[in-house]
Design a protein around this nucleic acid. Structure first.
Length: 166
DNA sequence: ATGCATGAGAA
DNA sequence: TCTCATGCATA
């Protein structure tokens, strides 16, 4: 119960340390209590509004999210910790707490994941080093050179930029 | 844990 | 059309 509820100030300038501290403490507690990332994600939905996948909780712990996204999620995560701790204090068993009733969300139709081979990745990365936002003509060029679909190349650059911004 | 993908909303 | 939050699929 240590410093989990301290008031780390998350504002411009030095949010890197605070959010790292919180995320690390959260992960430690989650593991100590024996919850999986998916458990927490589902719990957030059942109790505080919107639920999340294992992916998002993983990224929260790993700080692989934007600053604003971290700030937005943090309150729910804090609340989850508080609730778990008070439940434990009032004698509820961990096993009982872990019981999840995840409601299966509707499947979005997804296009199959393209897996880029090593040469293609290298080529894309080196291109990115030179130009982070190629225009249509330039992307069409890359598309031909690497024998990929235009959409795959377009999305690749979007994701690559997003990664850079985190 | 992370790569490729979706979709709503900003520009 | 791009960004942003988010996740299924995969390594």
């Amino acid at each position: 119960n240590v410093a989990i509820n301290d008031n780390n100030i998350i504002d411009e300038g030095e949010w890197e340390l605070p959010r790292r501290c919180f995320a690390c403490r959260f992960k430690t507690l989650r593991c100590e209590y024996g919850f999986s990332q998916a458990d927490v994600g589902a719990a957030l939905g059942r109790r505080y509004g919107s639920d999340f996948s294992e992916t998002t909780i993983s990224r929260f712990e790993g700080l692989v999210l934007s600053h604003s996204n971290m700030c937005k999620l943090r309150p729910s995560v804090e609340q989850w910790i508080t609730d778990i701790q008070s439940a434990i204090e009032s004698g509820v068993s961990l096993d009982q707490l872990r019981r999840a009733c995840k409601n299966v969300p509707p499947l979005r139709k997804r296009r199959k994941r393209t897996s880029l081979d090593a040469p293609q990745c290298l080529a894309l990365d080196s291109y990115f080093d030179v130009n982070q936002r190629p225009d249509n003509a330039q992307m069409a060029d890359v598309t031909k050179t690497l024998d990929l679909e235009f959409e795959v190349v377009r999305v690749w650059f979007c994701n690559r930029r997003q990664k850079t911004r985190r």
